[in-house]
Design a protein around this nucleic acid. Structure first.
Lengths: 233, 233
DNA sequence: CCAAAAGTGTTAGTGATACACCCATGT
DNA sequence: ACATGGGTGTATCACTAACACTTTTGG
């Protein structure tokens, strides 16, 4: 058992007024060809019953990212997700209860893991289309808008999108994912050429049969050790 | 005189432990063909005499950006700068005095304004080359490294670089600026073609004579109203 | 007329876009 | 044999990269 390190609580810094600090998480998934975001119904004193992004107060002995992971798991039951710090929102009156600064994270989870059953505690978490969701508490609409913009732009120059798919996927599924997030259609041949040029995915020997047509080949991401320096990751 | 709005200090949220929150600013300029960052010598109890990024505790009644502006002016005398939120650092033990979360901002100032004389209070502020600066307090090296990366990448796809030049400038100065920040040389003809294609700058009728050679034409940024939708800003 | 930086065009290569038909399967 | 989505190649265009000489000025 490691003893918790302590701070110097006699320091002058404790004379400065302290704000409350929360972490809010915008978690996306793609389901039924829709980009969706997870929202929870608030139980706290203020804005009870309103929908909001999952969030909570940080603990002093955990890093911001640890807070984000803990809160996400507590509130939604989801674990092992791609997580990235988004922006810190600190308007003085964004919360009438006090000065509350929130560090927003954005997270992606694949459509398989997403199906995890909500536990008792998270009965009030629900996925909403990003084009059709209820009014949100606080400045959470602003946070959501901002993270949508970020997701779209990161999709173009990184491979975050892969986080939203299961381990094995067809190229059509991958393309559909891009189309859904970017809200535009893409050319099939050009899309496949692009993906091939990235050198990030490889064929498996399996195919996926769905419906009455030619089965689609399943692909997977190359394991790290087979990626070259020059490959974009 | 507007009365200050108040918060509900009886709310449960005040039962959660609160961290200290600071703002730290990484402010860059280009001077003598070097990319430089402003550092201050600490006067506070802890780490007195060590160099650090200018920073300070937020006030509860100002936004994070207002805090950043106030602190920057207090500590360095500089005003009216380009300012952008960078990242929020919150490792639990980054400061031994207590749990301190810092919202880092990154700022750019042109080489003219930069010459402002330091006031009494800011006597201990100094510009350092980003390749040669003293050891920094806390995790400020990490913050600085991160903002350098951000500056470089933003330089490639935005026009932030323009913030580092005075109103009127020669194309060679602009190119030098890019070269200094990116730490690589650029082709003169290609650079000029690129700038021309952006449609953001226009010739003035003035030239700049410096030394014994052909005078260079001065350029300025087009005023907003002459920019077309299609022009990258 | 010399030194020094300003200024200017063309070509080759690379990546993006537009576009239409055949393939494999289940019924 | 047909309906359905899977899978493939080529031509054009736009952008990037490489490269060298002439111009203007002060001394």
């Amino acid at each position: 058992m490691v003893e918790k390190p302590k701070w110097d609580m006699t320091s002058d810094i404790h004379k400065y007024p302290k704000p409350s600090v929360t972490v809010d998480i915008v978690i996306f998934t793609v389901q039924n060809d829709e980009l969706r975001v997870l929202l929870v119904k608030r139980k706290a004193d203020l804005k009870k019953g309103e929908w909001a992004l999952p969030g909570g107060f940080i603990r002093l002995d955990e890093s911001l990212e640890e807070s984000a992971k803990r809160i996400l798991e507590q509130k939604t039951g989801v674990k092992d997700v791609y997580l990235e710090q988004l922006y810190t929102f600190g308007d003085p009156f964004r919360d009438s209860r006090g000065r509350v600064i929130t560090v927003a994270y954005f997270a992606l989870i694949d459509s398989e893991k997403m199906k995890i059953k909500p536990t008792e505690e998270v009965a009030d978490a629900q996925w909403f289309s990003v084009y059709n969701y209820p009014p949100l508490a606080f400045d959470h609409k602003k946070v959501l808008d901002y993270s949508l913009t970020r997701l779209r732009s990161k999709l173009e120059y990184t491979t975050v999108g892969f986080q939203l798919l299961p381990q094995k996927f067809t190229l059509t599924e991958l393309q559909k994912l891009y189309e859904v997030i970017l809200a535009k259609t893409l050319d099939k041949r050009n899309f496949r050429k692009k993906i091939a040029s990235l050198n990030l995915v490889e064929q498996t020997k399996e195919t996926k049969m769905e419906g009455v047509h030619r089965p689609a080949r399943l692909y997977k991401f190359k394991s790290k050790k087979f990626l070259l320096e020059s490959d974009v990751v």
